[in-house]
Design a protein around this nucleic acid. Sequence first.
DNA 1: AAAAAAT
Length: 649
Amino acid sequence: MFSESTRKPTRPTRPRYLPRHMRSPQNGNDAFLDTGAPELTRSRFYSPQPVQSTRGRGRGRGPWFTARRNPNWEDEKFDELEIVDDTLEEAYVTNNLQAYEDIPVQAYEDIPVQASGDNVPPPVKTFAEIDLGDGLKLNIRRCNYIKPTPIQRHAIPIAVAGRDLMACAQTGSGKTAAFCFPIISGVLKNTLLVARHGGGGGNAVACPLALILAPTRELSCQIYEEAKKFAYMTRVQIAVAYGGTSIYNQLRRLERGVDILVATPGRLVDMIERAKVSLKMIKYLALDEADRMLDMGFEPQIRRIVEQMDMPPPGTRQTMLFSATFPDEIQRFASDFLSDYVFLAVGRVGSSTDLIVQRVELVQEMDKRNHLLSLLRSQRSNGTPHSKVQLASSNLIGVLFCTMPSLDSYKHADKEILFNVLQHALTLVFVETKRRADELERWLSRNGFSAIAMHGDKVQMEREQALRSFKSGATPILVATDVASRGLDIPHVAHVINFDMPKNIVDYVHRIGRTGRAGKCGLATAFFSDKNFNLAKSLAEVMKESNQEAPTWLVQHAENYSASGGGGWVRRGGVDFGGYDLREDIASSSTYNDIYGVPAIDGHYDAVSVDAPTLLGSGDDDYLVASDMNHNAAAAPYGYGSIVASGWD
DNA sequence: AAAAAAT
């Protein structure tokens, strides 16, 4: 049993970043509540004058300078971006969200933790308990990671002990850091850094010590940015390789030496075949969204990289697989890559977090468009525009969604504010095909909603532009295929709409996991059509697992027809997300409950982390947030208030 | 029958 200390009363919080689209036009400067809180005077969070060019500070030295190095990033926020330093902690300011403290939120919940394997290293309660190295530790502090999340508490000691790991944890619970910290720490301790260039000379072959694979380009980008932040000012060199963009720049980067390579499979294979990369020095291999990487479409490529290139075999490298879901079948594939691994499941695997309010609506195919329009219209019209928008900290989105069923018990004024939040929040709409994404984008635009589509038929520039436009709020509706369903950490997504249900329930869990991240709440609406009844049972189960109220028609159908649903991910009466160690001969196994801090009213894991929203600047129009480097996929630290870490999964 | 991932 591991339990957290008692609930902290009221935490001081930093002022919140308010994205452009949530600011009141006439009142941009006051987007942060004036609460009589101490002024930020000394803190360099405040950039009183435009920050000087970072040129003198060393081009490419760290993630905090990333924005400047990439000419494509034109967001004005980055022009003012300045390094976060140790004055972080001084920036705490209280805000009046405490006024909402009386809104009932379940304080704690036991979360099940299953850890099995030989001699499983015990979890820690703080980052300080683990020897991660000074440089990394300082960066963790810089990033405001105050306390580890449950998956981090359990996975990091296991990984630092050098063990192979198969880890499952809910979407938005901080998986990226859970594998990045041990890898960076391990690379730092590695005395073999000399081996960066295998060949030497102009034809250098890059020999990274660590490889992190991800299923989409945007996700690998996000992990890259995140990892760079963690490795800031250490000697650890990180590079990224993905398709859809010039390979030459990526190769040039590799020639400068790389310790950790983040990649999508295709581009990596290309580079290996060109003899620009060798995997012979790999000590750490991490697969993010591991079940996805090992499913039908991907498995041959991954197997090729892991087994048929020059990667050291299991046992001589450390392999870590992470995902929110881990079906049995995939676990079996995965065990080929592992050696004496620890299986870890934190939380109810496959269930979404309770923080996502899930609604299911029965909609006929032909009615979907109009249904979506009226849904968006009511979202837009509920509330009074402008007046109180600046109150709309995204924390309140959480309040709204968490309390939606009992919203009537709140004062009208509060409701108004809350609806304002929803009105200005980002909405992510998932569709089945690339074509439908384009069609729906056009339809929404024609009908007065600013929407943009993202899918794999767009060129990479367009994909990234769409994502950027969505993140910034310039286009508050994103219509996407499953390219956006996994891992992407997009702050301020308040509403995920499954316009078309995914084929299997695993994808549903990942899709809705784009909201409700890092302790914030979110809303997920499913358009359930005649074609989806094969999903009824598994959907009803997921909702039940997540303490959601499923409509009776769904439950009834689920009971009457035990049609397996879930596209084959089914096990004895249950949905198979994994969550159970398949090995039968494991020496030891422990299952216990961990006490998990459920977000306090302002959306932070009360017991897990201290709020740290990280305001950087204020001025005419500069709202600088360390964490909001999410735009560039950098990140934010855990628990960090209204700003969500990127790479959370 | 579909998305993704190299050119």
